[in-house]
Nucleic acid binder design. Sequence first.
DNA 1: GATGAATGAGGATTCATTCAT
DNA 2: AATGAATGAATCCTCATTCAT
Lengths: 158, 158, 158, 158
Amino acid sequence: MADGTIYLYFKNKDDILVQFFSYKAKQVFDLFREEVSKSENAVEKLRNLVRRHLDEFQRDKNMAIVYQAEMHQNSRSAEPQIRDMSKMYLDIVSEIVEQGQADGSMRKDLYLSLVKRFIVGAVDETINHWLHSGGKYDLVSMTDPLIDLFIRGIGSTK
Amino acid sequence: MADGTIYLYFKNKDDILVQFFSYKAKQVFDLFREEVSKSENAVEKLRNLVRRHLDEFQRDKNMAIVYQAEMHQNSRSAEPQIRDMSKMYLDIVSEIVEQGQADGSMRKDLYLSLVKRFIVGAVDETINHWLHSGGKYDLVSMTDPLIDLFIRGIGSTK
Amino acid sequence: MADGTIYLYFKNKDDILVQFFSYKAKQVFDLFREEVSKSENAVEKLRNLVRRHLDEFQRDKNMAIVYQAEMHQNSRSAEPQIRDMSKMYLDIVSEIVEQGQADGSMRKDLYLSLVKRFIVGAVDETINHWLHSGGKYDLVSMTDPLIDLFIRGIGSTK
Amino acid sequence: MADGTIYLYFKNKDDILVQFFSYKAKQVFDLFREEVSKSENAVEKLRNLVRRHLDEFQRDKNMAIVYQAEMHQNSRSAEPQIRDMSKMYLDIVSEIVEQGQADGSMRKDLYLSLVKRFIVGAVDETINHWLHSGGKYDLVSMTDPLIDLFIRGIGSTK
DNA sequence: GATGAATGAGGATTCATTCAT
DNA sequence: AATGAATGAATCCTCATTCAT
């Protein structure tokens, strides 16, 4: 494809990113929704979500690299798209946690917005570490240990 | 300051970043060590560490912005410096968790490397969200809720 | 032509020089070879070579200027190209002198490497003087007096 | 010596070159004059001049490098100084040749300006070759073979 | 007289974008 | 619709020169 051809389909370089994220976000979040719906149990829903999250980022390492970079940049053209993705993720996590609270499997005294960051941050950092290690180990196998930490925390319950 | 002046103090543009992180890292980690030593209790040590972490990043928002961007970029000149910072943080967290395991306040079945990402990731994402919100609310007030999530997790213990 | 355009055709500024000399050298030395082959007589071959040499440098004064500057600089990017040009010139002169020695028109006690410098140096200096004079007189008319000096020297043979 | 100090003694960078050449030229040409006066014989005078020329440039390789570069550049700040040096050299060579013509040791049909270039060029090229070889061999030992070529030329006199 | 930190014009190079074909 | 040669603003960096101490 010639240099100039890209400008027939995208307004400029930033627009490539913006459109890519719009497209990818929709695609990935449909998968997330589908995955979450596979279980009735709130904890299992969260486990399925995190597993799928790690799996998708492991499958598309380039996307993972760009996402990690864009997500943590303060002045980005793709700002609104990234916000949308975050928002969608938050919505899914919120629903799961609310269900968990309703069915008694999750604490009722949770600050939802913080819980979302608590989960997203840990997953992101897990992906980030995997990327910096060169993507050499199996990312998906981190799912269960992570869920265990989310649910039980690190404190001893003796 | 004239264009050329910067080159009297730094080898090149990358070197500015590298030297800045070397300097800042040393300074911040001395504070972290000091903070951690203020308490005997492992959970309180972790709380002090996180509080100081949020406090320092809140105090120096520009540093926070650059750190977040560099930390999540895969090809960075400041790579070794960032790695060193991470390593120091890991060491501190490791010590705290090991102490917590010894005195019975933390679970003994923890995968240390994952615990570190679990904590660092959640704190980073908390900072990230604060930055994207424009730094409008008090970041340090997130300390206790975060520690609570780290220790107890989100699962109900009924 | 815009600033950036040159970089479509040359790797960098040095490369302009290198490629120019490669191209010009080939072209000029083909002419030299052709010129030399026009005569059977060694002295006439030398005369044709020098005439063509002066003629080509007179025709392309810019090339002459750059060549004179590069040729006498100790640290040059175009070093290998210049060396090649010199080498080719040396080869041609060597062949002529060896033929002259064989047919008895040239002395047999000559140190070839010095003879080359003796000829090249005198021709170069002649060109150099012409350049510094502003290229105002006819350079080619220097051919016969130069050849006379090369062949007979300045000593009286009474 | 500090950066700024040089500007107390020289107007600018070019002026360093200009003053250096003025100084060096005077010094070297005094030596040349002295050397030439050591013999009564024209050929021996030329031999002494060339020997001293090669000797001085061999002794001060840095000067040789700068001289070779400046001498063959068309736009030089030190232009007038270089011209003066050339002029002095020409004067010396002219005197020698004129004496040689008077005493019968040199041909009377010589174009003086060309003879000078013939000699200077060959000597310069000899120095140039020595510089590019890294100054590894003894330059002064080229004197006699060079003089032989100047006087007798390369033609066979059978 | 000496200093050397600061200067900023100049130069090589890149790269996102345009536009004639 | 596709091309890719040409563009030139922007960026990093150098280095000759100045000037307050």
